[in-house]
Amino acid sequence: MPTSMSQPHSESRALPPYRGLFAVDAKDFTGLPAVQHGPVSQLIPELVDHALGRAGLAELREGKRFPANTGDGIVFGFDPEKLPFLIWPLLPVLDEVLATYNQQTVGPRIRLRASVHVGPLPDAGGPGDGNGTPRNDTHRLLDSRPVKAVLAAASPETTHLAAVFSSRVWEDVVLAGYTGLHPDRCIEVPATVEGKSFTQQAWLFVPTPSGNLLEAGILPAAQPAETSDTEPRHGGGPGNGARYSGNTQHVIEGAALMGDVGGDFTYTGGASYRAANQHWGDGDNVSGDKHTGGKGQA
C-alpha cells in the first residue's frame, strides 16, 4: 500500500528534528577520465573521515545521519550541537589533510568545496531520511557561483578547500561566537546557482587563501569602495611596500581583485575581463576590454 502524502497547510504536525548538514564535492570531477571516477568517489569520504578523526570528531564520524555518496562528494547529517566543531577545527584540518594528500599523490589533485547548513529534516530510520529543503539548499550552496569562483581563482598548489555557510549557520554559530572561527575570516556573498531559482546570502571561508585571494572581496551589494580616513589607497602593489586599508569592493557576484593582476581573468557569472597587467589604486583601473552579460551592467 503506497504511503499517503501529507498536504501542506492542511493541519498542524510535529516539526522534524533539526539536523546539521555537511557536504563536499570535488572541483573538476567530471573532467577526470572515466576510469578515475570510481576511485575518487571512494577517496573523498576516506579523506573526510580521516579529517574527522584528526579533528577529534571520531564519534561524529561513526554516527553520521543519512550519509550519502554523491559521486563527486558526500553529504551527511549530524546533531546540530556539533555544528561549531564542523566549522572549527574540522575545516582547517580537512584543508591540511587535502594539502598532504595532494603533495604526495601521483594521481589527480583533490580540491573540495564544502557547505554547512542546518534545518528540520526527517530522521526516523526510514528511506526518506534526510530529504527536504535544507538538504536541497546545502547542495545549492555547494554549486553556487561565488564558492566555485573563489576556488577556481585560487592557486591549486596552495588552496585545497573553500567552504560556504548558510545564513542560519552564520548567525547561530559563527556570529554568535560558538565556534573557533572568527567572523572576520569570512566574506558575505550572494549565493546563486546558474539555471536554478536559488538566491541566498551566504558566507565564504577559505582556510588557506592564495594569490589574488589574499586581496580579493566577494561581497553582496553594488556600492562605492569604502575609503579609510587614515590609510591611503594610492601607489603600487604589495611589492613596493604600499599598505591597503578600507579597500573593500562591493560587487553583485564574482570576484573583485585588488593588487597586481597579470594576464586574463574570466568569471563565468556573466562578465569577463581581458587585460594586460593591472594595478588597483583609486577607483577602478582596468586596461583592455570589459565585457558584461547584458545591457546596462557596470
Rank of each mutant, 00 (worst) to 15 (best):
R233K: 03
D289E: 13
E46R: 12
T227K: 04
G71V: 12
G241Y: 00
H279D: 00
G77L: 09
E157S: 09
S167D: 10
V164D: 03
G296P: 03
D172H: 09
L175Q: 15
Q278L: 12
G132D: 11
G236F: 00
V251S: 14
P207L: 04
A255M: 15
H291N: 12
V189D: 10
E157R: 12
R19E: 05
D184W: 05
T70G: 12
P190R: 14
L175P: 00
F198E: 07
A255H: 07
A26S: 13
E226G: 09
L161I: 06
H250I: 01
G77S: 10
D229H: 00
P16D: 14
G246L: 10
F78D: 01
H9C: 03
G237H: 06
A176Y: 05
P67V: 05
R65F: 04
R140C: 05
E194G: 03
T3F: 13
E171G: 02
D289G: 07
T248H: 08
Q104C: 00
Q42V: 14
P156D: 06
H291F: 07
G241R: 13
W280M: 03
G237P: 00
T227V: 06
P8T: 09
F198P: 06
S4Y: 08
T227L: 11
E253M: 00
T3M: 12
A275T: 14
T248Y: 11
S4Q: 15
